[in-house]
């Protein structure tokens, strides 16, 4: 049940500093915890609570609202098969049944070897490419049952050192936003802002 490691704690402080109010960093930090451990560990939530200065209960309150945050370990690959209308019209039900057969698990479960978690998901914004699915939130389009089998074989043989490989569950963007210190304007607490930005003429002045 790990807390954020030293490197991630440093990243967390950087992220917090971008927001005018610390708590705004909560969701990005929960993603950071999930990236570190593959799920959001209880100690990580306590650690985040310290960093953003709220109670651990508030962190859990936010965390438990959002579907992507897993409170228990899941597979290395989370496979989300879309089941909403456009995909359903073009065979999502068959695809989900096939996925269950191929992986030998029911929707919501994880394979014994911990490689795959299967989930039935809702609309993934790829409706013209139905039926679609995501592996760790990366799209696969127009997936036939044969495509699905080939995908599982590919994932089973994937070389994790290949930079193009799908990263393990928890890693979303492989690129982080970086703001060079000399270029940042910097976040200011809302109550400390009293006037318009320097480049903005005040509206009353403009009218005259």
């Amino acid at each position: 049940m790990p807390r954020l490691n030293a490197n991630n704690e440093m990243l967390a402080r950087e992220i917090i500093a971008r927001y005018p109010v610390r708590k705004s960093a909560l969701i990005p930090l929960l993603h950071l915890a999930q990236e570190q451990d593959g799920y959001v560990a209880e100690d990580a939530m306590a650690h985040i609570a310290e960093l953003v200065e709220v109670t651990p209960a508030e962190v859990l309150g936010t965390c438990s609202f959002y579907e992507m945050f897993k409170l228990h370990p899941v597979g290395h690959y989370v496979i989300n098969v879309c089941g909403t209308l456009s995909c359903q019209l073009l065979g999502a039900d068959e695809l989900i049944h096939h996925a269950e057969d191929r992986l030998g698990i029911k929707v919501g479960a994880t394979t014994e070897d911990g490689r795959f978690t299967l989930e039935k998901a809702e609309c993934q914004a790829a409706c013209t490419e139905a039926p679609c699915l995501q592996v760790n939130y990366r799209h696969e389009y127009r997936v036939t049952t044969d495509d699905f089998d080939a995908m599982i074989d590919r994932l089973n043989n994937a070389d994790q050192k290949d930079p193009a490989a799908i990263p393990p569950h928890g890693t979303l963007s492989t690129v982080r936003q970086q703001i060079p210190s000399g270029r940042a304007v910097g976040a200011v607490a809302p109550e400390l802002v009293t006037g318009p930005p320097v480049w903005m003429p005040t509206e009353s002045a403009e009218e005259s």
Binding site: R18, Y19, P28, L30, E67, M68, I179, V185, P197, W199
Partner: peptide, 23 residues
């Protein structure tokens, strides 16, 4: 993006934020 955009007084931070699954 950032401080003094295109050499003017106009400055703006754009922060990438992302959700976690909730329609």
């Amino acid at each position: 993006v950032g401080r003094n955009i295109l050499g003017t007084d106009f400055s703006l931070d754009i922060i990438l934020h992302w959700g976690a699954g909730a329609y």
